[in-house]
Each structure stands twice: as C-alpha cells, then as structure tokens.
Design a protein around this nucleic acid. Sequence first.
DNA 1: AATTGCACCAACCGCAAAATC
DNA 2: AGATTTTGCGGTTGGTGCAAT
Length: 244
Amino acid sequence: MGHHCCSKQKVKRGLWSPEEDEKLIKHITNHGHGCWSSVPKLAGLQRCGKSCRLRWINYLRPDLRRGSFTEHEERTIIDVHRILGNRWAQIAKHLPGRTDNEVKNFWNSCIKKKLIAQGFSSQHMVELERAKMPILLPLSSSSQPLDFGTAVQSWVANSDLGAAFEPARRPEAYEQMLQPPMVGQEFVNKGLDLRGGGVVQSQTNVDMGSFDGCNIDLEFMEAALMPTLYTNVGSLDQLAWDCN
DNA sequence: AATTGCACCAACCGCAAAATC
DNA sequence: AGATTTTGCGGTTGGTGCAAT
C-alpha cells in the first residue's frame, strides 16, 4: 500500500538502508533538496519526498548533534515547554543540532517520567496534554513527591524563570500559582495572566483556541521569558502584548 | 535458554498552513 | 479567487534491543 501523497509511485517504507542514505546525502550535497517531492526521482530512491525530507532533517543533516541530552538541554526543554506546551519545533529551535522529533521523544521517554516522579500524577499529565496547554509545572530536585504548593515554592526559589514570580515582586500572581492547577479555561487564563505579568485583560473569554489564534507573538514571548535571555526581571513587568 | 515486558526511537500518518498554479 | 501541491508539524506506531523472570 502506498502513501496518499505518492500513490502513483512504488515506494519503499521502513528503515533506511546505508545505500539509501548515501544516495540521499550525495544528492542533497550536490544539488540541495529543492522541491522535496522531486528528490526521490532525482536521487534514484524508491521513497516518497516526505520520507526523504524526514530522513534528512532527523538523521542525515550534517549539523545534527547526536548523543544523549545534557542537563542544560534538559533544563531548557522543561523551561520552554512550560511556556509553549507541546510545540516541539519551537522548543527544538532553542537546542542547536536537535530536532523536534528528538525533543519530543526525549520528553515522552524521560522528562515526563521525571515530572510524574516529582509528584504530578500521570492522570494530571494526561489531562494537561489532552488540553494542549503549556505546563506551568515547577520542578524539584527532590525525589520526594511534592504537593503542588510546595513544588511552586521550590520552583520560584530554584529556577531562573520562577524567580520572576517571587511573592515580594508579585504577591497576587504568587498566591494564584499556589492554587493547584486546574484543567480547563480557568487554568489557561491563570497561565496567561501569570506569564504576561497581568497584562492580559480578558479573564473570561480566553480559551486555548483563542490563545493560539490571537496576536500573541510567541517568538517574542519566548525570547522575553527565556531564562538565559533576560537578566533584568523588571523588564518582565513591562512585557505586554495585544490579544485582541 | 526461552519468554515476556518494557523503553527507546526512527519512521509513518493525518492534518493544516503556506506556496504555487 | 479558488484549486492544487508542497511543506511542516505533532501524535502515534512498530521494530529492536535489553532486562527481568
């Protein structure tokens, strides 16, 4: 059975052989990929363009960084995921040489387990993911399960991003954060409110759909909130965006 | 030594957005 | 402007290898 995208051709599926890899590398090195749908024919491969693209991006690209994730990379993934949710391609942009697929696999196989081990029930994780929400979960190096409030305190005390929400700086936001997260609109609104430093005015009609569709500049928000990129927490107070 | 269960990860699928015709 | 094609993304699957029984 063929792919719907290339039903005319006989296409091979499954793992790539070294010979196929070689053909693809040779072709792209000499000619660039150009239009992916024409790559298989030009490279002499019985694959669909989609498969070629994936193989190149996830495995053959020369700038890929192989091997296990460093602690710093793991930290970055968790921090950015907290802001963006499952936007793997966006998260991968913060990790030179890593692909969205790799980050996603790493999250699903390692980080999720760690978060669960740190006191977040697997049911809670499932619900959060089902709702496609950014996860505002604090972390602890402790192996002891934490209740949510304790975990928040630990996160604020121990992470760069969390420091922006110190009680002295932002008492209402801090109080809000101490409430266990809820799945649904209210939590999303809280998340927006906390991340935006209270700039989001609408507290009643913002759901995840409008979050995705509104004019929030995610790249900008990321840049503004990335721990490695901001040094003056006060600038967070001035962060504002138009959500109409 | 054989079997089973599990974790990992490469690759596929379906969908939506963007580009092109 | 609408249809078609291409690209990119996130979710999911299935093969492989390793550990436990």
